[in-house]
Amino acid sequence: MFKRLMMVALLVIAPLSAATAADQTNPYKLMDEAAQKTFDRLKNEQPQIRANPDYLRTIVDQELLPYVQVKYAGALVLGQYYKSATPAQREAYFAAFREYLKQAYGQALAMYHGQTYQIAPEQPLGDKTIVPIRVTIIDPNGRPPVRLDFQWRKNSQTGNWQAYDMIAEGVSMITTKQNEWGTLLRTKGIDGLTAQLKSISQQKITLEEKK
């Protein structure tokens, strides 16, 4: 169930391209415009997507990853294993993690069937560096609404905000991946996880038929 919630949630996290980005210092504006741009692209490019579902990787690479804190999220997933990894191991892992996100997020976007969304009203940021933004996803086919909290983090150097995690039903996506990959990290280390991520990233994206 959580895996499905995570995939549905990713439908609204794909941010804007650099040329049309919203105010990078306001995570609420980023979330709002990102959702609108993403849904528009999914709707307008269905012919290309249906002809070649792996085209979704391109959308992810162009529109999402430049505005997601990939390395920060990847380091959180590694936890204690990050500090013990060599620079070469980290570089290989982050490259594999990025390719994994292209496949995983692309597969999530393949679930698009006309969903709509509501974003919580903007709250004062103050001096906060981590801000959760509640998004409610509404399914046109009558499924119950899904309420999610996207975690946005302020870059201490640039002042810009980027998304790095999502919490559904009190469970963090980062925590879920830590639990899912924990045994592999304990037995085969970061190299074993890197190899698995490379394998997963090679899987073809498949479209979910409308139910």
Rank of each mutant, 00 (worst) to 15 (best):
M1S: 00
K3A: 00
R4F: 12
L5H: 01
M7D: 00
V8P: 00
V8T: 06
V8N: 00
A9R: 00
L10G: 01
L10T: 04
L11C: 06
I13C: 08
I13L: 13
I13R: 00
A14Q: 10
L16K: 02
L16A: 11
A18L: 13
A18F: 15
A19D: 00
A19W: 04
T20W: 14
T20S: 08
A22W: 08
A22F: 09
A22S: 11
D23M: 15
D23K: 05
Q24Y: 09
Q24H: 12
T25M: 11
P27Y: 04
P27R: 01
Y28I: 07
Y28F: 10
K29T: 13
M31P: 00
A34Q: 02
A34S: 12
A35Y: 04
A35E: 04
Q36R: 08
Q36M: 15
Q36W: 12
Q36H: 12
K37P: 08
F39K: 01
F39N: 01
D40R: 12
R41I: 03
R41W: 02
L42Q: 12
K43Q: 08
K43M: 08
K43N: 09
N44P: 05
N44K: 14
N44D: 14
E45R: 03
Q46T: 07
Q46E: 11
P47S: 12
P47V: 10
Q48R: 10
R50P: 08
R50A: 10
A51K: 14
P53D: 15
P53V: 07
P53H: 09
D54C: 05
D54L: 06
D54H: 08
Y55F: 07
L56N: 05
L56P: 06
L56I: 14
R57N: 15
R57K: 13
T58V: 12
T58K: 07
I59G: 01
I59H: 01
V60A: 15
D61N: 08
D61T: 05
D61E: 12
Q62I: 11
Q62W: 03
Q62D: 10
E63V: 01
L64G: 00
P66R: 03
Y67R: 04
Y67M: 10
Y67T: 12
V68L: 15
Q69H: 09
Q69S: 13
V70Q: 10
K71R: 09
K71C: 00
K71D: 01
Y72Q: 00
A73R: 00
A73H: 03
A73Q: 11
A73C: 04
G74P: 00
G74F: 00
G74M: 02
A75G: 05
L76E: 00
L76W: 05
V77D: 09
V77N: 14
Q80A: 11
Q80N: 04
Y81W: 10
Y81Q: 12
Y81E: 14
Y81V: 15
K83L: 05
K83W: 01
S84N: 07
A85F: 03
T86H: 09
T86G: 08
T86S: 12
T86R: 05
T86N: 07
T86C: 08
P87D: 11
P87H: 08
P87Y: 04
A88K: 06
A88C: 10
Q89D: 11
Q89F: 05
R90A: 03
R90N: 04
R90T: 04
E91P: 03
A92H: 09
A92I: 09
Y93I: 02
Y93W: 04
Y93M: 04
Y93L: 04
F94K: 14
A95I: 11
A96T: 08
R98S: 11
E99Q: 09
Y100K: 02
Y100W: 12
Y100G: 07
L101C: 15
L101F: 13
K102Q: 11
A104E: 03
G106P: 14
G106M: 09
G106Y: 02
Q107T: 13
A108S: 08
A108C: 07
A108T: 13
L109S: 14
M111N: 04
M111Q: 05
M111D: 01
Y112H: 04
H113E: 07
Q115M: 02
Q115S: 03
Q115E: 08
T116C: 14
Y117D: 04
Y117I: 09
Y117P: 03
Y117N: 08
Y117H: 09
Q118I: 12
Q118E: 13
Q118W: 09
Q118H: 12
I119C: 07
A120I: 15
A120Y: 09
P121I: 10
P121K: 10
E122Y: 13
Q123H: 10
L125V: 09
D127L: 06
K128T: 07
I130H: 04
I130L: 07
V131C: 12
V131Q: 10
P132A: 15
P132Q: 13
I133Q: 06
I133L: 09
I133C: 12
I133R: 02
V135C: 06
V135G: 03
V135Y: 03
V135I: 05
T136K: 15
I137R: 01
I138V: 10
D139K: 04
D139L: 15
D139F: 15
P140I: 13
P140Q: 13
P140T: 13
P140Y: 08
G142M: 10
G142S: 08
G142V: 09
P144Q: 07
P144T: 06
P145D: 07
P145Y: 04
P145Q: 05
V146W: 14
V146C: 07
V146K: 02
R147H: 09
R147V: 02
R147Q: 03
L148P: 02
L148N: 02
D149F: 11
F150A: 05
F150P: 01
F150T: 07
R153A: 00
R153Y: 00
K154M: 11
K154F: 03
Q157K: 11
Q157P: 01
Q157T: 08
T158N: 05
T158Y: 03
G159C: 07
G159A: 11
N160I: 10
N160H: 08
A163P: 14
Y164W: 02
Y164A: 02
D165Y: 01
I167W: 07
I167F: 05
I167M: 13
E169F: 00
E169N: 06
E169T: 05
G170T: 00
V171M: 12
V171R: 00
S172V: 04
S172I: 03
M173G: 00
M173P: 00
I174C: 15
T176W: 02
T176N: 03
K177S: 15
K177D: 15
K177E: 10
Q178Y: 05
N179C: 05
N179S: 11
N179I: 05
E180R: 01
W181D: 14
W181E: 15
W181R: 01
G182R: 14
T183P: 10
L184S: 10
L184G: 10
L184Y: 05
L185V: 11
L185G: 10
L185D: 02
L185I: 14
L185S: 10
R186K: 00
K188W: 04
K188N: 12
K188V: 08
G189H: 09
G192K: 10
G192L: 05
G192C: 14
T194K: 07
A195F: 10
Q196L: 06
L197H: 04
L197M: 11
L197Q: 11
K198N: 08
K198I: 11
K198A: 10
S199Q: 14
S199C: 11
S199I: 15
I200E: 09
Q202A: 08
Q202K: 11
Q203F: 13
K204M: 11
K204G: 13
K204I: 07
K204D: 12
K204T: 10
I205Q: 14
T206C: 09
T206Q: 08
T206N: 12
L207S: 09
E208C: 15
K210M: 11
K211S: 09
